[in-house]
Deep mutational scan, measured.
Amino acid sequence: LKKGSQVEALFSYEATQPEDLEFQEGDIILVLSKVNEEWLEGECKGKVGIFPKVFVEDC
């Protein structure tokens, strides 16, 4: 996944840490960066945070 690409949430993700990005199933997320193999940083609904890659798929 490249910076600036968009992904769609397959499942809702509930934030458990302040840096987490919370979203609902079906939301479109703009990928800002790759944190590591399992986590991405993205923006959704004006909020920025990190989230697990397994919760999303390429649009």
Rank of each mutant, 00 (worst) to 15 (best):
K47G: 05
V48H: 08
Y13I: 06
L21Y: 02
A15E: 00
E57N: 10
K45F: 03
E37Q: 04
V7T: 14
Q6I: 11
A9M: 05
A15P: 12
Q6A: 02
V56M: 01
S5W: 05
G42D: 01
V56H: 03
I28W: 12
E43D: 06
G42W: 08
S12W: 04
E37I: 06
V35M: 11
A15D: 02
V56L: 04
S5T: 12
E37M: 05
C44W: 10
Q6L: 15
E41W: 09
I29W: 12
Y13A: 05
V48S: 08
Q24F: 10
K3S: 06
I28K: 15
Y13L: 04
A15I: 08
T16P: 01
E25T: 13
V54N: 12
K47L: 08
K45M: 07
V31S: 04
Q6R: 12
Y13M: 14
P52I: 02
Y13E: 05
E38N: 11
E38V: 06
G4T: 04
G4V: 06
S33K: 14
G26L: 08
L40S: 02
K45I: 00
C59R: 10
E43T: 10
E43Q: 12
D58S: 12
S33I: 08
F55A: 13
E25S: 09
E38R: 00
G49C: 02
D27K: 08
E14D: 12
V56D: 07
E25Q: 14
L21N: 05
Q17G: 15
K34L: 07
G4H: 02
V7K: 00
Q24D: 14
I29G: 08
D20H: 15
P18N: 12
S5A: 14
Q6C: 08
D27F: 05
K3I: 14
E19V: 06
V35E: 00
Y13W: 06
E43V: 03
L40P: 12
E25F: 00
E38G: 10
F51K: 00
V56I: 01
A9K: 09
V56R: 03
L21F: 03
K47A: 00
Y13Q: 14
K3L: 08
V7R: 08
V54I: 11
F55R: 05
K3N: 01
L40I: 10
V31D: 12
I28V: 09
C59K: 06
L30Q: 15
K45P: 00
I50G: 08
Y13G: 10
F23Y: 05
E22M: 01
K2D: 14
L30N: 15
F11L: 08
P18C: 03
F55T: 11
K45R: 12
E41I: 14
L21W: 06
I50M: 03
Q6V: 15
D27A: 11
T16M: 10
V7E: 00
P18L: 01
V48W: 01
F55N: 05
E22I: 01
F23R: 10
F23V: 04
L32M: 05
A9G: 06
F11M: 11
A15S: 13
C59A: 13
K34C: 09
Q24W: 11
W39E: 09
E22H: 10
C44Q: 02
E38L: 03
Q6G: 02
Y13R: 15
V31K: 03
E37Y: 08
Q17V: 03
T16R: 06
S12A: 11
G46I: 04
L1K: 05
F51L: 02
G46W: 08
L21G: 07
I29M: 03
E37R: 10
E41P: 06
G49H: 01
I50W: 00
